[in-house]
Write a protein that binds this DNA or RNA. Sequence first.
DNA 1: CCGGGGATTATCT
DNA 2: GATAATCCCCGGC
Length: 202
Amino acid sequence: MKKLSPRFYQRQDVVQIAKELIGKVVVTHINGVTTSGRIAETEAYMAHVDRASHSYNGKRTSRNEPMYSHAGTVYVYICYGMHNMLNVVTNDKDVPDAVLIRALEPIEGIEEMLKRTGKKVLDHTLTKGPGNLAKALGLTKAQSGLQFGHAEIDIYDDGYKIKEEEIGVSKRIGIDSAGDDALLPYRFYIRGNKFVSGRPVK
DNA sequence: CCGGGGATTATCT
DNA sequence: GATAATCCCCGGC
């Protein structure tokens, strides 16, 4: 298990970073309990030029302020009034690129994840989709603005290698109001992984 | 298996 | 007052 270096997050190409985050391991220590999972699905959001991004056209508010912080910052926000979403901020300070972590394959702390989500048994819904994932990991906007590497949250490379052909690419989910930008191929996922969100594609 | 719609509230205008 | 980077349930086939 080795931490991702600051250099990993600092790069300019957020789409490439989103792709490389597939297969990495997110670990949280919240209230003394450790939970972790392997990233199965991500989406890239490109700063001010991307209509789907919270920072489109340079929009800057107290909610999305962490996006303008330096690479390796945690950005958590609430969507539809009830779901927390986990993002990784990349690129230089004041360039608000981010990667949304959309799905995980649970590894550690499954009992705790079941307790947090109110589910009875481990099935593919435990960490499928960004809302479920943040809930299982115990993340809320209390973690927004922290750095990856903080005691409560980090991302590791455990040496797991994923083959190029195992990674699927598609347009992003749930951003229909973003016009043509909704069609950009900025979503990456592990083909055939049952934790990947959305209806299975034939 | 698939698709439609309601839930629920922080955030922005 | 409207919107939203979602989830879950329920009905129909």
